[in-house]
């Protein structure tokens, strides 16, 4: 990881739902940090707790335990009004571009709102200039797109609007929850490249949440593999994916569609034949952390 201080960090955060016997531990003592100009990927299957992590960051859930740190200080204990600064600095791009835009409002409305709320000092003309600039950034033509309603746009265009909306208030952190999973394969790459460009040009810290390891490799310098609310393996992307040590990571990797292997051939011996064992054992609480290499760690699966 880089030496810069993290913009945003989770420090041993836990969150569970339900009661007593049917308790679901969606986040179990998770810790990670986001740095400017870097993307951290959070991968795992559905129900592993990825979106819970995003919601904890967005302050939609309060942690049961642990702290959320913004520029090193706990988010809840800041001075009055600090949450507003936090909400400006941390923006989210949602999974479903068909339901995350309001169908009765134009694109212009979607981009004006965040500016009115977070930069009330901007005059009409300045605001229009800011909107045009952000649309150009996401490679859309402002004159054509501003008067349109969401239903007049394709999925890829809508997702670009979602990204533009997030960028409009000059954020420092972008939380992107499966931003391409609802899009057609042929437009996914465009959105990923856009996120990569924004990260580089604007020095954004990005948390990229996905179940698609191949796209994670494409955008992220660092990666975390999550299962049953626990981060089981994490570190530099090339190290984790090139030399996966946790059985669950290896299971995920062997299940990724790969045209170089027929269905009967697998990447790792036997991981797919002991899916149930790996699932059961990986779900057990494990506080021990083992260092595999510089910036590559696992929580060993109990035998």
């Amino acid at each position: 990881m880089s030496d810069t201080t993290p913009i945003l960090a989770l420090d041993h955060v836990s969150k569970s739902f339900g009661r007593a016997e049917a308790r679901v531990h969606a986040a179990r003592s998770i810790s990670f940090a986001l740095h400017p100009g870097r993307t951290l990927a959070l991968v795992g299957e559905s129900g592993s707790g990825k979106t819970t992590a995003a919601r904890l960051i967005m302050r939609e859930y309060r942690p049961d335990e642990g702290r959320l740190l913004f520029r090193g200080s706990p988010v809840e204990d800041g001075p009055l009004g600090s949450l507003k600064a936090y909400r400006r600095a941390v923006q989210m791009v949602f999974q479903d571009p068909f339901s995350s835009l309001n169908p009765v409002h134009t694109v212009r409305y979607h981009l004006e709102r965040p500016l009115q709320l977070h930069q009330p000092a901007l005059k009409g003309a300045e605001r229009r200039a800011a909107i045009a600039e952000v649309l150009t950034r996401v490679k859309l033509d402002p004159a054509l797109i501003l008067p349109k309603y969401p239903h007049e746009l394709s999925g890829g265009q809508r997702q670009r609007i979602s990204i533009a909306r997030a960028l409009a208030v000059n954020p420092e952190v972008i939380i992107a929850d499966e931003p391409t999973s609802m899009l057609d394969v042929s437009v996914r790459l465009g959105i990923l490249n856009l996120l990569n460009d924004m990260k580089r040009q604007l020095g954004l810290a990005v948390l990229y949440i996905t179940h698609d390891i191949a796209t994670a490799r494409y955008v992220a310098e660092d990666i975390m593999v999550m299962y049953a609310g626990q981060i089981v393996e994490w570190g530099e992307t090339e190290s984790v994916l090139g030399n996966p040590q946790h059985p669950y990571t290896r299971l995920l990797l062997s299940a990724v569609p790969d045209p170089d292997r027929r269905l009967t051939e697998t990447l790792f011996d036997g991981e797919l034949s002991r899916v149930d064992v790996i699932r059961r054992q990986s779900a057990i609480d494990q506080s021990e952390v083992r260092e595999i290499a510089a910036n590559h760690f696992i929580r060993p699966m109990p035998a």
């Binding site: 394969v185 042929s186 996914r188 790459l189 390891i213 796209t215 494409y218 990797l253 990724v256 170089d260």
Partner: peptide, 21 residues
């Protein structure tokens, strides 16, 4: 060929990192 170029893939030198732009 273009469809293939638009897909980021794991463990392949032909990843879209090169083909994408």
């Amino acid at each position: 060929r273009r469809l293939w170029a638009s897909i980021p893939r794991l463990g392949s030198e032909r990843t879209a990192r090169d083909a994408g732009q």
